[in-house]
Computed example of a mutant assay.
Amino acid sequence: MKQKIAFALIMGVITTGVISFTLLFINIGFVANFVVIWLKSWSMAYIVVIPLILVLGPQVQKLVDVVFKDPAAQRIDT
């Protein structure tokens, strides 16, 4: 469980940072207070994303497992 939480925290920092920076740059450009706006947006995105990763992550993993299940392995299991 510690590894899943650590993964969510690290992945959240990277993804929210890159996406918030990119979208702000596209929408407003490098204005005088860009860094302040970006840090505020980044922190809000991070607060939203971490619980989503922790809650939805297991369901997404199950879906991926179903989609990519090896038919040969399924015959062996039954």
Rank of each mutant, 00 (worst) to 15 (best):
39 L>A: 10
67 V>Y: 14
50 I>T: 05
15 T>S: 11
26 I>G: 15
27 N>M: 14
5 I>T: 08
29 G>P: 10
33 N>Q: 14
36 V>C: 01
31 V>A: 08
74 Q>V: 12
4 K>S: 06
69 K>S: 09
3 Q>W: 09
29 G>E: 04
12 G>V: 03
45 A>T: 04
17 G>A: 10
15 T>L: 12
38 W>V: 00
66 V>Q: 12
12 G>D: 00
48 V>Y: 13
60 V>K: 04
66 V>L: 13
33 N>C: 03
17 G>V: 09
36 V>N: 09
4 K>H: 06
76 I>C: 01
17 G>Y: 04
1 M>I: 08
72 A>Y: 05
12 G>K: 01
72 A>G: 01
6 A>D: 09
36 V>R: 02
60 V>N: 03
1 M>R: 07
48 V>Q: 11
19 I>A: 09
75 R>C: 03
75 R>N: 04
70 D>T: 06
10 I>E: 07
16 T>P: 01
61 Q>K: 11
66 V>H: 05
74 Q>Y: 00
6 A>K: 09
54 L>P: 08
56 L>P: 06
8 A>L: 04
17 G>I: 04
48 V>H: 09
21 F>E: 00
70 D>Y: 07
19 I>S: 01
38 W>E: 10
10 I>A: 12
59 Q>T: 15
3 Q>M: 08
11 M>Y: 11
62 K>E: 12
33 N>D: 15
36 V>I: 12
10 I>T: 13
51 P>Q: 13
22 T>Q: 07
48 V>A: 12
15 T>H: 05
1 M>G: 14
64 V>D: 02
3 Q>D: 13
40 K>T: 13
60 V>R: 03
18 V>A: 14
68 F>L: 15
31 V>N: 05
37 I>W: 07
51 P>S: 12
24 L>W: 02
38 W>R: 01
55 V>F: 15
19 I>K: 00
6 A>S: 10
42 W>P: 01
25 F>A: 00
66 V>N: 09
8 A>F: 02
56 L>Q: 12
45 A>R: 02
8 A>E: 03
28 I>D: 08
9 L>S: 05
5 I>C: 04
57 G>T: 08
36 V>D: 11
64 V>Y: 07
76 I>A: 06
59 Q>K: 15
69 K>V: 11
43 S>I: 10
22 T>V: 13
69 K>P: 04
72 A>E: 13
29 G>I: 07
12 G>N: 02
51 P>D: 11
36 V>E: 11
18 V>C: 11
11 M>Q: 11
30 F>R: 01
23 L>I: 15
62 K>Y: 06
7 F>E: 07
72 A>Q: 09
10 I>C: 07
74 Q>K: 11
39 L>G: 01
62 K>G: 01
